[in-house]
């Protein structure tokens, strides 16, 4: 299991890109942190979610 924003989800083996797409996030406007470290945008296609990972995803909006 993987904890994403506090919820336990069975998504191990997916890449960050895959998960973001399936969960309907806009990749360009999110920050992703796995186990306390930021995942750079350039690594979203390679970084795989593993059992036991704690993931935080924050969406940003640009208005003001």
């Amino acid at each position: 299991m993987i904890i994403i924003n506090g919820n336990e989800l069975d998504v191990s083996g997916k890449t960050v890109s895959q998960y973001l797409r399936e969960a309907n996030y806009t990749t360009a406007r999110v920050a992703v942190e796995i186990n306390g470290d930021i995942v750079p945008k350039s690594e979203y296609d390679e970084v795989v979610l593993n059992d036991g990972d704690t993931v935080e995803i924050v969406s940003f909006v640009g208005g003001g």
């Binding site: 806009t26 990749t27 360009a28 406007r29 930021i38 640009g62 208005g63 003001g64």
Partner: peptide, 25 residues
């Protein structure tokens, strides 16, 4: 701590954003 660029990488493309004029606020 991190800056905005640490978190988002760079300016999102227009297709990925909405403005308050388009989306409301």
């Amino acid at each position: 701590g991190p800056c905005l660029r640490c978190l988002l990488g760079g300016v999102p493309s227009p297709e990925d954003t909405v403005t308050c004029a388009e989306a409301g606020v």
